[in-house]
Design a protein around this nucleic acid. Sequence first.
DNA 1: GCTTACCGTAAGCTATAACTTACTTAATGA
DNA 2: TCATTAAGTAAGTTATAGCTTACGGTAAGC
Lengths: 103, 103
Amino acid sequence: MAYQDVLVALADPTRRAVFERLRGGPCSVSEIARDLPVSRPAVSQHLKALKAADLVRDEPRGTARIYRIHAPALLELRTWLDGFWDEALDRFKDYVEEDDASD
Amino acid sequence: MAYQDVLVALADPTRRAVFERLRGGPCSVSEIARDLPVSRPAVSQHLKALKAADLVRDEPRGTARIYRIHAPALLELRTWLDGFWDEALDRFKDYVEEDDASD
DNA sequence: GCTTACCGTAAGCTATAACTTACTTAATGA
DNA sequence: TCATTAAGTAAGTTATAGCTTACGGTAAGC
């Protein structure tokens, strides 16, 4: 729900792979698991975590369940990052001015 | 170095606290540890992780060592997020159009 | 009603991340 | 030179995240 949860959710490589798989459009749990080197229940657990972070939404379709990306949660993290950016950038400028051979 | 490392580094609450402490400007390890409920070596280890992710830079000052935020690493994550945003937003629009009572 | 397909949850295992204390190293100051 | 202050590293402990297999529940098709 908050940016902290988004960070935790997206930090895990497998869970990020699940999330990026949905980039191509909504699909079912089994379809996601087919492309990944982990079991289907593992994918279910990752989707549960992603849903808790409000990064995905799900919807039943027959016996299957379709997951899709819920973009607004990404915006929360972006906003936090931007707030950081403004302050940090000023100090970075100071740093560059006093030390050129940095980056 | 990559956005993945930034995500992992910022996912931990304590490490995020260390990072946000530097938001107020550069300071030493002991100064950071004073405000946190963990030991000084723990802070050192977190700073090592942050440095590995290129999120901070350090510089010796006498017997102390001054850490400061290195902003460009944040930009990497932001860029990844933006790339995600463009594609995800389109699909989110479709979602909103077909289901109004979402958010 | 019965089978089949799809999914979530439970239980258990294992690797590891985060923390501690103890030690070592390095720079200042008397 | 010796004591002091600051910080990184090593070693060991503990909690937990991620994975597995096994099981239970629900919707569709015959």
